[in-house]
Nucleic acid binder design. Sequence first.
DNA 1: AAAGTGGGTTGGGTATTCCAACTAACGCTC
DNA 2: GAGCGTTAGTTGGAATACCCAACCCACTTT
Lengths: 143, 143
Amino acid sequence: MPTHPRECSIANALGVIGERWTLLALREIFFGVRRFDQIASNTGASRDILATRLRKLVDSGLLEKRQYEEHPPRYEYVLTEPGRALHTVLLTLMDWGDRHVTQGAPPTVWEHSCGEVLHPRTVCEACGETVHTRDMRLVRASE
Amino acid sequence: MPTHPRECSIANALGVIGERWTLLALREIFFGVRRFDQIASNTGASRDILATRLRKLVDSGLLEKRQYEEHPPRYEYVLTEPGRALHTVLLTLMDWGDRHVTQGAPPTVWEHSCGEVLHPRTVCEACGETVHTRDMRLVRASE
DNA sequence: AAAGTGGGTTGGGTATTCCAACTAACGCTC
DNA sequence: GAGCGTTAGTTGGAATACCCAACCCACTTT
């Protein structure tokens, strides 16, 4: 019986983006919102917590804090490459929420460059087939 | 300026699975672990919190608590259809963690039924193309 | 009869979060 | 040039959540 928790990239990922408000702040930045006050009111996070979360995201390398005005000093938060790579996670989570939590129509709609409304599908990179739980098998995991 | 937070399926989803330990408990159940004690030690969650989380997941319809033995009473947690549907979120999150957080080799490896190691890819359901941030455009969102 | 297993609950202390108010640096307007 | 507004936070105290060890209960095993 392992006394120690399992080592796992899900746990590691949640160590960076798993705290309350973090994913909502990132959602806002994906939406194109860049300013502190707007992120605060669009998410509902209190300002002190939001400041802490944004600092951590900058420290973790998911965001960059850029000064876009010197007088008065004004900042904006922009996604780095690792931060941008989270769009698949947000999209997949949003889709699950649309299907299984939100009542009624999806509150947020994205369009893909192909012209259609964007619904994400998770496929196997090797064969291109849609991934179903019955088709995946655990090969190796830490004890 | 909206005083109220944005309505959004990401927020709604996080209302169900966004608390600490919840996704790790679900990960264990995806791994095939069914018993309370094992979930507790594999995640590192304290027993009282884990009990609260599992109760909420059952109440939310993601898990079913099944008695598989009467004497002594023994229970197991099994995923319902909405719960199983989360596998894409877990996989996508794990992949992001493998690439951007975990140092060294991925601690957990899944195999797809096609025979290859499973790496998830998020594609547009309509056209089948890999989704990149530059190819998605926000059409409608709540204020 | 004592120890072990599985699935929790309880009590008490610690850590986080929430909220309103405050600072600070400027710009705008009358 | 005094006051108001904007942006980006910080501070202090109260409320909430979390952690941990110990305990309970119903059995089974030795």
